[in-house]
Design a binder for these strands. Structure first.
Lengths: 227, 227
DNA sequence: TGTACATCAGTGAACGCGCGTTCACTGATGTAC
DNA sequence: TGTACATCAGTGAACGCGCGTTCACTGATGTAC
């Protein structure tokens, strides 16, 4: 027999609490999108099975799988955004920039499935990432750009265009690093605590040592080679 | 009625020429993988339709869609590899490095679907990229790493590990740039002729002007803004 | 306190579709004698 | 030169599957009088 349901047979929500299923569906879809080897294969029926309801019940809360996935993106962006703002408490501009990069890479490493959902377009077939996602992503980029400009151009002498370009180059480098590391884990990657100073030395034109001094707690070494 | 076939009804191959269908299937699959908005949706039946044969005929040449896609990857790698070697004719090491980067980005821009097939893992569901692809990709990376080391370390004073790290950072930056530009075309990107000097200035620590002088023909400006 | 009715949260069966894969087949072309 | 047979290059129909979506429904809980 096929496994008709993955969880216990679920007790229906109390009168007036119908919107709870909405949350459960979003969480089930979010979990599946992160966990599935091929998120493109996610179906409405899979989500319903994971939530323990009939496929038809999904339509009470979402017009289709696309609308459900949109809510998943909102959820995931809120999670990453909250983590990124942890870097704001650091003392200086360079510390905050280093903190943002470390948090970004750290979140990507700790949550590869979630990162993939947000930034690699790995969504179910027929579903495109929404306006919501674009808005949240632009916000994240603007904050990173500002953090970089605060270290390279404290007097605000350069143009906004220059700042934007520099921010884009930094973000594409981070994104490229994340995806390349995820897709080719067998290549000889340095630890994040060493990669970030190397990368920021390029993008800030400051010496590696100065940046490395801003890496908190020493997350470094261990798997690094060479003196 | 559904469109049962996309092309003319195809004349069957002559006696002894059966392996021609193999080539036609690879080319049909390659074209579809590049052109489809969602390559993950590619099916064996679609390839058969595009080639003008019955679905069952595919099995005479490939065990399944995965084997067919593997041949597509071989084909695409050979194409990119041939283009990359065009940079070998340039006069100096910096010119060759600049040439490689320009060709890489240029090929990615001119063939976004093909790039996606090779480097973004956008393959049909249930199909994973093969050992063939990994080998060809590693070769490309090694050549780029050597080209970078030839400009930054002509006396070969640094370790292989340092070269490998630097090569990886450069390639991830290029790859990140390509994917970010493809996924977010509305962001204010500079022209490739200006991006490559900016990027290589970071990775070689040479002045932008020296690198820009190596960009052939002046593919620059036009869509660039700011003085 | 009763009772008729409305609302809510969700079900279960059914539909038509495209899919991968199988199997026996067809008809043209070559080869042995 | 004939003719029986083998090989080749495919075909066409069928199968079982999971899918999105629909529709009438069910049974518990609230509300009006």
């Amino acid at each position: 027999m096929p496994q008709e349901r993955a969880t216990a047979p679920r007790t229906r929500n109390a009168w007036g609490q119908g919107s709870r299923l909405r949350t459960e569906l979003v969480e089930a879809a979010a979990t599946l999108l992160s966990a599935l080897e091929q998120p493109e294969t996610l179906t409405l029926r899979q989500v319903a099975r994971a939530a323990g309801v009939a496929p038809a019940s999904v339509y009470d809360h979402f017009s289709d799988l696309g609308a459900l996935v949109e809510s998943v993106l909102e959820l995931r962006y809120a999670e990453l955004s909250a983590r990124m703002h942890d870097a704001d408490v650091a003392s200086g501009p360079l510390e905050r920039l280093v903190g943002r990069c470390l948090i970004y890479l750290g979140w990507a490493d700790a949550h590869p499935g979630e990162y993939r959902t947000l930034f690699s377009g790995r969504l179910p077939v027929g579903v495109a990432s929404s306006a919501v996602a674009h808005r949240s992503g632009a916000e994240l980029l603007a904050e990173l750009t500002a953090a970089l400009a605060a270290t390279t151009d404290p007097d605000n002498a350069d143009s906004d265009t220059d700042h934007t370009q520099a921010g884009l180059l930094l973000w594409t480098a981070l994104h490229g690093l994340v995806t390349a590391r995820a897709e080719h884990p067998n290549l000889p990657w340095q630890a994040t605590g060493e990669l970030v100073p190397a990368l920021l030395a390029l993008h800030t034109r400051l010496p590696v040592s100065q940046i490395a001094a801003c890496v908190p707690v020493r997350t470094v070494s261990g798997e690094s080679r060479e003196a």
